[in-house]
């Protein structure tokens, strides 16, 4: 089982790198679906994982939300707004990949410094979660379109979910955390959806750069 978990974590790192390097929105959505799936099944594969009916049921719910519902919603949103193809970066793709590598390094460093204060957990879990959080922030900061901000937010949430797994020895408290985050996410995505809609209506585009003209 431990090997499977390791493979999953490696895939998460891969999704982080791919996500930051992606230049097409559809590609990014697929990566999100992939990441969501991996992140959802990871808790069951860990050694301390809960593999009874409750644990599996929870996994199923997560899988549906992260791996299916959210990506489909994003897919629908992108389809709805016609001229959405490229992610339109502020930071170039090469620089993005470079930042992704730097981020993985930084995650390792932060994990090492934090390790003494943390409950013992799977080796690469903490760096993976920190890298995912960082990648979420990166997508929010370095991409122009409002929809990439939603994607960044979702990735951030994946990272928080991983951190939750790492921090919680007790699975119940982790679930509590996760439900709280999900609620947060729902609100966040809804607000972002409304904002995207509004920006689109007002400026005939979803470029958040246009919002700069609204400041007083």
């Amino acid at each position: 089982m431990s090997h499977c978990a390791d493979i999953c974590l490696a895939l998460i790192f891969l999704s982080v790198l791919l996500g930051m390097a992606a230049n097409r929105l559809m590609e990014l959505v697929k990566i999100m679906a992939f990441q969501g799936t991996i992140v959802s099944i990871l808790p069951v594969l860990l050694e301390a994982g809960q593999r009874d009916a409750a644990g599996l049921g929870f996994m199923a719910v997560m899988l549906t939300v992260k791996g299916l519902v959210m990506p489909l919603a994003l897919y629908a949103a992108i389809k709805k707004v016609a001229n959405l193809r490229e992610v339109e970066p502020f930071v170039g793709y090469r620089a993005s990949i470079f930042s992704a590598l730097a981020l993985v390094l930084a995650a390792g460093f932060i994990d090492r410094t934090l390790a003494p204060f943390m409950p013992p957990t799977h080796v690469m879990l903490m760096p993976a979660s920190i890298a995912t959080i960082g990648a979420g922030f990166f997508l929010m900061m370095a991409r122009r379109k409002a929809i990439t901000q939603v994607i960044g937010y979702l990735m951030l949430e994946n990272g928080i979910y991983l951190t939750g797994i790492a921090l919680a020895g007790e699975t119940h408290s982790q679930r509590l955390l996760e439900f709280g985050v999900l609620l947060d996410l729902l609100a966040g995505v809804m607000i972002m959806g409304i904002i995207i809609n509004r920006i689109n209506q007002t400026f005939d585009d979803v470029d958040t750069g246009m919002l700069g003209s609204l400041r007083d």
Partner: peptide
């Protein structure tokens, strides 16, 4: 305060 969401984040 420039209005760019990305920089606010």
């Amino acid at each position: 305060q420039h209005g760019h969401i990305q920089l606010y984040i």
